[in-house]
Design a protein around this nucleic acid. Structure first.
Lengths: 149, 149
DNA sequence: CAGTATCCTCGAGGATACTG
DNA sequence: CAGTATCCTCGAGGATACTG
């Protein structure tokens, strides 16, 4: 394996980053969350080469982020859907989106799509929170310590 | 520029992913949030080559995520600190950490460090929330629409 | 200590054509 | 439609040595 060092087996962020810090993987996941499921759709929407797309999809299936689901066409084919593990990546994508919207605004100032809470129409926002007292946290509010053994 | 297509100028996630979906960038940011500031410390802690480290640091400074701050040694040197834009990446890193801790547990089951709210000692958690009604959201609770023009 | 310069390798990713 | 097979390029990244 190349880049083995990237995946420091001790660090959670490190191992997640080894999977998600791949050129196409984050974009592929964006498409999945937007509803894309089929090979040809990924290929045309993302303008990714067929071989790399095949590889990335297989990798995400291997990791348990996507699963292949059969559907009927002329012959039986498969589409790719999020597993529970995959769905759990939603906060990562949303945090990325929030940050990009605020700090890397598009040239023409328009977002490519809007997101709203289905029930009340409110805006969607990713944040870090204290599970105890419920306040929103920044890096400065958090203490890093050696793990409890 | 290689991989120009990656940075679909329309999509916020796309442009953020082009920066953060780089092999070493997420790990570099992890180190920064853990308090690393100096070249040699990054180099030894991450086991990254000097040239790539130089490049990545310059890139993050260019993008306004890090800034160089002079400090006194034998001669004047610089260390790298988060800008406001850089600090704003905290939710991304924390979302990644939460996900990894739950879905990519380390081999030996131990995290490499713990995080606690400085004030109350509570746990730290990244989540997606509705700014209107305040409930926690999953992908299923969110509607995607064409942007308002 | 914090880089820069040089050189090299290898593998990620693209293009294209083919297959069931 | 959803891939697989083949071939090729180029650039990301490592190793090493040097510099102020």
């Amino acid at each position: 394996m190349a880049h083995a060092k990237l995946a420091d087996p001790q660090c959670t962020i490190s191992r997640s980053a080894a999977l998600l810090g791949e050129r196409w993987t984050l974009l592929l996941l964006r498409q999945v969350f937007l509803g894309t499921r089929r090979f040809e759709d990924f290929q045309s929407q993302m303008d990714i080469s067929r071989s790399v797309l095949t590889e990335r999809l297989a990798e995400l299936v291997d990791e348990g982020v996507l699963r292949r689901v059969a559907y009927k066409d002329a012959r039986t084919r498969y589409e790719y859907r999020l597993t529970e593990k995959g769905h759990a990546l939603y906060p990562v994508l949303m945090a990325l989106r929030d940050w990009g919207a605020r700090w890397m605004p598009p040239e023409d100032g328009r977002p490519s799509f809007d997101l709203h809470h289905h029930d009340c129409g409110g805006d969607v926002h990713a944040k870090v929170e204290c599970t105890e007292c419920g306040v929103e946290l920044t890096a400065r509010d958090v203490r890093v310590t050696a793990p409890n053994r």
